[in-house]
């Protein structure tokens, strides 16, 4: 072996370290066949169960009146203006038919005004993208607990690699996974009948990725800081359980905010997932509303900056203790 004595003249750039650490995680992820299967299976199950079972369209459809039988109506001719002799008969089946038509039209109108689209499945499928983004970014942040436990983190910290690269690699890993998954879900949803709005172009995907990146970065920075600092392994898991439900249901993922009780509307409006979901809907199934989209992005931008700052400061303190 030649020249073990030579001094080491190299120095890692932030990007090099960041990239290497991120690739490590992505490699681990892609090498795991179960992981890839889960990637497809999980959204399929969710879309199948939630999107198709909560078939809100059906409530308003003609079918929901099928059990209703309306008797024929007899009106004595003397009640009519001008009076006629005999009896007027309005067949019940005719009324049913008219009602069904009216109900169905009404349903479409209600759907349109409440959800912005006429089919609930499309509405729901986009919501699932948001759900997966939260789950994935949080779960991938948790890997730092293992890195710490198994000594990997200490080893990396004894090298000149930037501490920022260590934290950012986790954030980047989480968001890249989320973006990858979101693409898979949207593609699957499209195959299952998601109706894209005419304003959709493939370029919109970039907007979707940007929105996911912002939410993912904000959530995962804070979560990573928390995982780093918690002394017990199960803490991060408990936190996920605690925040998942409120984040999911106090948002527009399943149901429009405008129809929620007022106190909940307040929560749902500050919930970043509402803005993420709205942004993705704007970019896929809704006719694009530029102002609404911009407001979403402004909100998400602020959210990401504030939470990343908090998370990075906390992690930094831990890593340099």
């Amino acid at each position: 072996m030649s020249g073990m004595n030579g001094t080491n003249e190299y120095y890692p750039s932030l990007l090099r370290g960041l990239w290497a650490l991120t690739v490590r995680e992505l490699k681990k992820w892609l090498k795991d066949p179960v992981m890839v299967l889960m990637l497809v299976l999980q959204p399929l199950i969710w879309m199948g169960l939630l999107g198709k079972s909560m078939n809100i369209n059906a409530i308003f459809s003609a079918g929901s009146l099928s059990g209703v039988t309306i008797p024929d109506i007899y009106i004595p001719g003397s009640y009519l203006i001008p009076p006629v002799s005999g009896t007027l008969v309005i067949p019940g089946s005719f009324i049913t038919q008219q009602l069904q038509q009216a109900f169905s039209d009404l349903g479409a109108k209600v759907m349109q005004s409440a959800f912005g689209v006429t089919d609930y499945f499309s509405y729901m499928a986009v919501g699932i993208v948001s759900m997966i983004v939260v789950m994935t970014t949080m779960f991938s942040g948790m890997s730092i607990v293992w890195d710490r436990r198994l000594g990997f983190l200490n080893k990396v910290m004894s090298t000149p690699v930037s501490r920022a690269a260590i934290i950012f690699s986790k954030v980047l890993n989480g968001t890249l996974r989320a973006i990858f998954q979101a693409t898979v879900i949207l593609a699957l949803a499209y195959l299952l009948g998601l109706q894209l709005s005419p304003t959709f172009t493939l370029l919109n995907l970039l907007g979707i990725y940007a929105a996911i990146f912002l939410v993912g970065a904000g959530l995962s920075s804070v979560f990573i800081a928390f995982s780093l600092r918690s002394t017990r392994m199960e803490r991060p898991m408990q936190i996920i359980n605690l925040v998942m439900m409120p984040l999911m249901f106090a948002s527009n993922i399943f149901f429009p905010i405008s129809l929620m009780p007022e106190w909940m509307q307040v929560v749902a409006k500050v919930n970043p997932l509402s803005h993420l979901t709205d942004a993705v809907r704007q970019l896929t199934i809704l006719p694009l509303d530029g102002t609404a989209l911009m407001l979403d992005f402004v909100y998400l931008g602020i959210f990401a900056s504030v939470l990343s700052a908090i998370g990075i400061v906390l992690s930094w303190k831990y890593l340099t203790k």
Binding site: N8, Y10, G17, V161
Partner: peptide, 14 residues
């Protein structure tokens, strides 16, 4: 091998 290369990356070795 991948592990050693990862270590090398941490030092910025070309």
């Amino acid at each position: 091998y991948e592990n050693i290369m990862l270590c090398a990356d941490m030092y910025g070795i070309p």
